[in-house]
Nucleic acid binder design. Structure first.
Lengths: 228, 228
DNA sequence: CGATTGCATTTCGTATACGGTATTTCATAT
DNA sequence: ATATGAAATACCGTATACGAAATGCAATCG
């Protein structure tokens, strides 16, 4: 029979809701959040909201506004550059470690499934689907590395990457069509044991992804437009 | 004139106290912590303790024990291996970025000061001093990189590295005498602009540091000895 | 003697209250 | 019109209370 699903705490639920709203753009950069307002909106008390906002602050998704709540952090080009510099060494390490430990048949199948979903989303022009598959693909690489530090560190920073991706897609820019070809080749090389090839293609992929993001004006938002 | 030092919140103070106790070994692996006990000990209410323990849990310094509080995490050899694998790519990136942006005279002086303190601590056999200087040296590299992702990520993991260092020193193992020679050479090469040399010495340094840690039995503690 | 069940205790999540601090608004003086 | 001071308001940190959930232990049954 089915097992009982453990309930997420109110803190976790609150955090997830706010992260999602920030990533998809429902909560815009510069928008102010107070604990009372969020608590009223989500029909909980201030205590779990305080804890969730503490996590958002720690993950740099919001910034303190003195004793006037917090504001949703802007898309910071400097932070994104730091994240991509970071990725440029961490993700090749991830595929190196993954190649070293080898992939199981199930893991190979899982990777191919994610890539198939990415291709399908590209065919359909399903941009949110492409973002989801993109996240799933890179998260898989971290998991395959078997290195929990890579996995946990990147989980935090992917919220920022997702925000940038969503912002770019909202401005009607196209999702680069080379992405899934590159994902395909990265994974194929990894499965074939050609780890250095895989790492090289990954570095190229990251350079391209960052060039796409850097070429898009994500500068600090006009505060007057916070209510836009 | 001097600026007013803003008071640290009770949450921050509680977290710092607990981290310090875990790092220096006052709180031992396997030791159980409940919110009521910590609150009574520190003379605060449970609320800031709950928040601080949440951060400790997120930083893997404690582990949940169901509805029986948390336990201080053991020194996990797998986690330390993951951290050192991670460092092996992140720290060379840090010196690469530092070399790219160049060092100011003040930064060069600061680095030399830290290294001098390290040598002095070595001469005096001041092991806590050596650990502090070690932390300060690597933290300086992260800061010099100008990459906030490196800086913040490594800040978390250095609590684990410090724990391992403290455990090794408590077992009367000697602090490797090559450490400060290597720090000296890493920094000298960086200051001279020989970034690849600096990165190469750093990698060698990390291999040695990890070999030192890996060679020391840090395995999961005997739970019966939690009260030791 | 081992397994099961019921009950008491411990612990935590979260709601609410209170006080302090920072910020904003308004009134007054120049 | 501008500056300044006082008052009001908004917000957050933290204390406390309450209820739910998990755990441990003892009694009972097979």
């Amino acid at each position: 029979m089915k097992t009982v699903n453990p309930q997420k705490s109110l803190v976790e639920q609150t955090y997830d809701i706010l992260v999602e709203a920030i990533c998809v753009g429902t909560l815009k950069p510069g928008e102010r959040l107070t604990q009372d307002a969020v608590a009223a909106r989500l029909n909980v008390s201030r205590q779990p909201v305080n804890a969730a906002i503490g996590l958002l602050r720690a993950n740099r998704l919001v910034e303190s506004a003195g004793r006037r709540g917090v504001v949703v952090a802007g898309l910071d080009p400097d932070l994104l550059r730091d994240i991509y510099d970071f990725r440029s060494v961490v993700e090749p390490l991830a595929v190196t470690l993954a190649g070293r430990r080898g992939l199981t048949e199930a893991e190979i199948a899982e990777g191919r499934g994610i890539i198939a979903e990415g291709w399908q989303a590209l065919r359909k022009g399903d941009e949110p689907g492409m973002v989801r598959a993109d996240v799933a693909f890179h998260t898989l690489l971290y998991r395959l590395s078997g290195n929990c530090v890579i996995e946990e560190t990147m989980r935090v920073y992917w919220t920022h990457i997702r925000r940038a991706m969503s912002a770019i897609l909202r401005s009607r820019e196209r999702y680069p069509e080379t992405v899934w070809d590159q994902h395909d080749r990265i994974f194929a090389a990894l499965c074939a044991g050609r780890v250095e090839d895989s790492a090289a293609i990954l570095r190229e992929h990251l350079l391209g992804s960052f060039a796409n993001i850097a070429g898009h004006p994500l500068g600090p938002p006009d505060p007057q437009r916070a209510d836009g």
